[in-house]
């Protein structure tokens, strides 16, 4: 029976645009697969029960908790992690830059989840109110900042992204 339980599952998936083909043990969580197998340690594992949000990744375009998915389920999927956000280390994504500029982090543990959740919010709602930002981030726990600078960072990112966005008509 033990052999059956550990029998590997073959998966083919794309992570941050790179194709991977791996054989995984069924119980391997997506978060552990990303960290241990692919070395993408930007995805952090906090509570391992879907509460803290630090393991948030984007699966097929939607934010999800990578501690509540098995790698074995990811065959054919496209996963984006925090490492895939900036195309150039010297040119951060506007949300990352805003967290940097506005001190939206202290220890940094929750930051990958915060950034990916905030990015998803801004893509859908480019001008969120403070209350909307707080509600969107309610599932991401930070034990350092008190959230004020995180909310400031998201507001600042919204402004940057709005000024970068292509206009409907030229002035």
């Amino acid at each position: 029976m033990d052999d059956v339980l550990r029998q590997g599952v073959e998966i083919r998936l794309t992570v941050n645009g790179r194709k991977h083909r791996e054989v995984v043990e069924p119980r391997l969580l997506l978060a552990d697969f990303l960290r241990q197998r692919l070395g993408l340690t930007g995805t952090h594992l906090g509570c391992e029960q879907g509460v803290c949000g630090s393991c948030t990744v984007v699966v097929d375009g939607e934010t999800m908790r990578s501690c509540l998915l098995f790698a074995a389920q990811m065959d054919g999927s496209g996963v984006e992690t925090i490492e895939g956000l900036a195309d150039d280390p010297d040119r951060l994504h506007p949300v990352q830059q805003a967290f940097w500029d506005h001190h939206g982090l202290q220890c940094g543990f929750c930051t990958p989840g915060m950034v990916l959740t905030a990015k998803a919010l801004l893509e859908e709602n480019p001008e969120p109110s403070g209350a909307e930002i707080r509600e969107a981030l309610a599932g991401n726990i930070c034990r350092c900042t008190g959230y004020v600078f995180i909310v400031d960072s998201v507001k600042a990112a919204a402004e940057t992204m709005a000024s970068n966005a292509p206009r409907g008509e030229s002035p």
Partner: peptide, 11 residues
């Protein structure tokens, strides 16, 4: 914690 081992089927 991590889950206990199990066999995975995806019908």
């Amino acid at each position: 914690m991590k889950p206990a081992a199990f066999a995975y089927c995806a019908p």
